[in-house]
């Protein structure tokens, strides 16, 4: 084979692989939609799960997911952003802080199932929160805090130092510089990171199964101490059953889940684009 033909073949191979990746995504999405389409209806969203597939719906899971992500965000966002602010704006350059950073990077890479075990031992058993929304949310909050920290640190790092200098030169104290100048400038980046972190928690299944999200919940939760289920756990529950009808339900549930995720990601993209526009103008 000549060198030129080798080069052409290689180019073709790279192109083929990239196309294949995109095709796989397309196949995955079409497959799920095809399987689920006949099960999706307004009633599906408004009914509780049932032993009879034709009467089953996803209402309790949808509500559970809303409860869990709101509470997760409530815990994780302030802690994550504050940690990032400390690391980026305050932390002295010493070994302890170096160690804290490594520690956070490792937490970000820790398998989600370990967070599940942690939540089980601490929130479910030790604090006695039982199999409640609170237990699940606290567990997910621990899981996404490192993600929020890393994203926020990046956003804070991109705030030009000249802005901090300008504020200091006006006689501002550090908290004023951070709260009134640095954080507002970093906000679009931080928001994007938060949304991506929350969308990660929307899809998490294993930690919630371990901390006790249930497969069958026939009511909508009323308080944070109620038992609950969430979309991915409900999907798992349906997908794990042998009957084909339940696979249809699982697919329909996935369509709902992916719609939620897609809208969140879209929001992140919109925020990013908007901030780029204001910055350049």
């Amino acid at each position: 084979m000549t060198r030129q033909r080798k080069q052409k073949l290689f180019h073709g191979l790279c192109f083929f692989m990239t196309t294949l990746t995109v095709v796989i995504l397309a196949v995955l999405l079409t497959h799920v939609v095809m399987e689920g389409i006949e099960w999706i209806s307004f009633e599906f969203l408004d009914r509780f799960p049932s032993r009879k597939p034709h009467k089953a719906g996803i209402k309790s899971a949808l509500f559970g997911t809303l409860w869990v992500i709101s509470l997760t965000a409530f815990f994780a966002v302030p802690i994550g952003v504050a940690t990032a602010v400390y690391l980026q704006e305050y932390a002295p350059k010493n070994r302890i802080m170096e160690w804290v950073r490594i520690n956070i990077a490792n937490l970000a890479g820790m398998p989600s199932i370990i967070y599940g075990l942690l939540g089980l031992a601490i929130f479910v058993r030790f604090f006695g929160f039982e199999r409640s929304i609170l237990s699940g949310s606290l567990t997910l909050a621990l899981l996404i805090v490192p993600i929020i920290i890393i994203a926020s640190e990046g956003a804070l790092k991109s705030v030009p130092n000249s802005l901090r200098e300008a504020a200091y030169a006006m006689g501002a104290r550090k908290w004023q510089v951070v709260i009134f100048q640095v954080l507002p400038s970093a906000l679009p980046g931080i928001m994007t990171g938060i949304i991506l972190a929350i969308s990660r928690s929307v899809g998490e299944t294993a930690p919630l199964i371990i901390t006790g999200a249930l497969g069958y919940v026939a009511f909508t939760p009323e308080s944070i101490s109620d038992p609950y289920t969430v979309l991915p756990v409900q999907i798992y529950n349906w997908a794990a059953r042998p009957q084909v009808e339940f696979h249809g339900l699982a697919a329909a549930g996935i369509v709902v889940l992916l719609t939620v995720l897609l809208s969140m990601n879209l929001l992140a993209v919109i925020i990013r684009n908007k901030s780029q526009k204001t910055r350049t103008s």
Partner: peptide, 19 residues
């Protein structure tokens, strides 16, 4: 130092107005 900076202002190399 904050008291000092109130009395001694500074203008920088590149214009850096607040956004």
């Amino acid at each position: 130092p904050v008291d000092l900076r109130r009395k001694v202002g500074m203008v920088f190399q590149r214009p850096n107005p607040f956004p």
